[in-house]
């Protein structure tokens, strides 16, 4: 658990962070989002002391981060940035294993760990000997994530890591990252300016403006509960539609029906936004099947689900 209390940061006379409070629970993914200059990167970097704060305390698993030697702290925190920062003179394996070598791991253990990480990020093992300049943007970023996860740190700090990738690569890597983080039960603090990315990845979204957290809620709660005008303007009017992407047809918990003719080839993992689009195209119900069952989907299914989610969070 990470607790930030009354964080204050000044750049010359500019207040980048104004008495910010935030508590991040184990295993959750908190997304910091906001316009440029709102302080989200500064807040992120204060956690692993890449930036020194001027006032306030940050505790990391109940230890004040100032009480630890900074290198020890950082070895427990994974850090991924947009430029990735892979070491150009080392190949993929050496990049991932750099900390492991410093920690004097045995060679076989290193080899095993690197293979593990590569498999998890869906990168071929043959990439171990490749140099960073031979990798595409998406591949490089995946290696960056592997490197951050090498020592199995409980916390990951991500500073707009997927911003420089093209939309298709970005979507793939976002989903892959979310799955890995959830599977490994990592605590993630993620900075982005892309509201859709925030919806996809965040268990909670912290909307920031001018050095303060304006609102902290789950993505679903934000549909109704918009405290400020700023929030309304930032997330936009079609926010509810964006939230649909967070869920899949599986979440609708549809009941199987008897065999009818399949009209569409979607499956339980299709996200709800796509499903809704399909419902709009299709005047009657959307019939699809997975391995075992056949299902029928109409738009009202989706609506009641979302209504249900909002009601849940309202209580």
């Amino acid at each position: 658990m990470i607790k930030l209390s009354q964080i204050r940061k000044l750049y010359d006379t500019q207040e980048a962070l104004r008495n910010v409070d935030l508590q991040i629970e184990d295993g959750e993914c908190v997304v910091l989002i906001g316009p440029s200059g709102c302080g989200k990167s500064s807040l992120l970097k204060s956690i692993n002391r890449m930036i020194d704060i001027d006032a306030g305390t940050i505790t990391f698993f109940n230890q004040d981060i100032q009480s630890l030697p900074v290198e020890q702290l950082r070895r427990k925190i994974g850090y991924c940035i947009q430029g990735v920062g892979l070491f150009p003179h080392m190949n993929v394996k050496e990049n991932i294993a750099i900390l492991l070598r410093i920690l004097k791991w045995k060679e076989e253990d290193i080899e095993r760990r690197v293979d593990e990480l590569l498999l998890m990020s869906e990168l071929p093992l043959t990439y171990k000997t490749k140099k960073p300049h031979e990798l595409s943007g998406g591949e490089a970023q995946r290696v960056g994530v592997c490197r951050a996860l090498a020592t199995d740190p409980p916390v990951l700090l991500m500073d707009e890591p997927f911003g420089a990738l093209d939309p298709m690569t970005r979507e793939k890597i976002q989903i892959a990252f979310r799955d890995i983080a959830q599977k490994l039960h990592k605590t993630v603090v993620f900075v982005t300016h892309d509201i859709e990315e925030a919806i996809l990845l965040g268990d909670r979204i912290a909307l920031m403006n001018e050095g303060q957290i304006v609102q902290l809620s789950t993505p679903e709660a934000l549909i109704q509960d918009q405290k400020e005008n700023f929030t309304k303007n930032f997330i936009g009017q079609d926010y509810p539609l964006m939230v649909l992407k967070r869920f899949s047809v599986r979440d609708l918990k549809l009941k199987p029906i008897s065999n009818l003719n399949v009209t569409h080839r979607i499956d339980l993992d299709t996200n709800l936004k796509e499903a809704l689009a399909l419902c709009i195209k299709q005047t009657e119900a959307v019939i699809f099947k997975d391995e075992q069952n056949t299902y029928s989907l109409v738009y009202s299914d989706i609506f009641s689900f979302i209504r249900g989610m909002q009601d849940e969070t309202a209580h």
């Binding site: 070895r75 430029g83 920062g85 892979l86 410093i102 960056g144 700090l157």
Partner: peptide, 18 residues
């Protein structure tokens, strides 16, 4: 030297000697 490379090295928790 590329600043992102230096940043990620710092963030990994490498000491300045390393």
């Amino acid at each position: 030297l590329d600043p992102s490379v230096m940043d990620s090295a710092k963030a990994l928790g490498m000491s300045s000697k390393h």
